[in-house]
Nucleic acid binder design. Structure first.
Lengths: 245, 245
DNA sequence: TTCGAAAATTTATACGGACAACCGAATGAA
DNA sequence: TTCATTCGGTTGTCCGTATAAATTTTCGAA
């Protein structure tokens, strides 16, 4: 049999369904590992892998000697983006797998031109990619990149390698990313994007746009817009006053 | 028989030290599980528990058939965020006015207790406020604050003055805000919140939660959650590589 | 040389067993 | 009653083994 889901994942899904449908209520205890072993006919190891999955999603909390407690029906976001430096901002791309959706040359429209700092009608390379989680097949985000057509050749490498666009551009073109401007907003998913992300049209989405600069005075050499389904991303940052920790 | 740390935890720590001290560089591969087994003299299971730990911290990413890649060094710091004051954390389009909605003493539920780092049932002051635009009557956000009941007396001042809660708390209680953790996510507006904000239930919202700490090791002294309608806020930040501009 | 198939390498899944640490309830002594 | 102890149940750690799946490397045929 070719593509069977792992058992622990099937069990985790079943438990999540039970929680969502209130067969297991928030605040109550999960069946014990022994019960789950018998119920699903698997080893304790597999049961623990399933519970570990729920734990990492923030759905249950375990306590030695007591049991596993359901603490949330929905869980927290699977991805927490911790931005403390440019390097970490860039490294985030490595945790996901990219899939090339489309690749074309377009003329900059009014808004894109303004953000790029060029005149409308300038030819730009436009690339759309899908970001998936490394482990499962969860679809994380729809990413659209705009860049100078000269940089367009990085796309093939981008789709296959695990490195970020900024990293590849530095290596191939000697362009260093020193400044990144990031804007975060919320919106509804439109029909097309929802279809791509397997989500419901109109459901909430987090939109992160970034402009990459070599220096603050230059035009950006890369624009990126990522559309995340609401449950796929929480942007987490820690701000520390200088001197204190 | 003194309490020894679990082996997997010791191994994870050792690997994190190796990464921080550049014996293992970001972008390179971790030693294979077999190598680590031999190096530490433990079973593969234990090695995997250690790697799992690093994975959950976002330090390494594993890929079947390829290996475990170091994607982020932890302790680097080198702070790249330009924030003048806590109030600048969020760039508002315009100034806002606060209006007190409710003020009560509640018992911390499971989730609030976890975020606060206290035990459930602890009594907390809970305050809800509405932020409106200065000019017209546009409703911007619903803000909920949780704090120690001792701090409760700032509320009246908060509703009238234009200053932030953190500022008032420093003045009145000598508590300095040195660390702020901020998380941004998207969600639908529920019935109640939508009614308060004059928005459509189910429409997208941007949720900003912040925890204010005096020091990184303490419990936060203030939790704030702000729910913005999608069109009311864009969070803009600029990241600059250290040393450059 | 080039390309596809096979082999080697590496992580992922899954089974089994054993003991330790911890919690809560039951027990028994003062 | 009250408090310390014991005991059963539950999760945590750790070992061993085996097979599957994904990726990279090697190698032979054209």
């Amino acid at each position: 049999m070719p593509n069977t889901r792992p058992k622990y994942s099937v069990i985790a899904d079943q438990l999540m369904r039970d929680i969502r449908d209130n067969r297991l209520t928030v605040g109550s205890l999960l069946p014990t590992e022994n019960d789950l072993m018998r119920a699903f006919g698997v080893s304790r190891h597999t049961v623990r892998a399933a519970v570990q999955d729920l734990k990492s999603r923030g759905i249950v909390a375990t306590r030695q000697g007591q049991g596993s407690k359901v603490i949330s029906a929905t869980g927290q976001a699977a991805f927490a983006e911790r931005i403390q430096s440019i390097d970490q901002l860039i490294a985030f791309g490595q945790e996901t797998r990219r899939e090339l959706l489309s690749r074309e040359t377009v003329e900059a429209d009014e808004e894109t031109a303004r953000r790029f700092g060029c005149e409308p009608g300038r030819r730009l390379a436009k690339v759309r990619m899908l970001r998936r989680s490394l482990d499962g097949d969860r679809k994380i985000a729809l990413v659209t990149l705009w860049m100078n057509t000269l940089l367009d050749e990085i796309v093939t490498e981008l789709a296959h390698a695990q490195r970020s666009a900024a990293e590849i551009i530095r290596e191939r073109f000697g362009l260093d990313t020193n400044v990144v401007e990031q804007a975060i907003s919320a919106d509804r998913l439109d029909e097309d994007t929802a279809a791509i992300l397997d989500a419901e049209p109109g459901s909430p989405a987090l939109i992160v746009t970034r402009a990459y600069f070599e220096s603050r005075d230059d035009e950006p050499f890369l624009l990126a817009r990522s559309i995340y389904t609401a449950d796929a991303l929480r942007v987490v940052s820690t701000f520390v006053a200088p001197g204190r920790a």
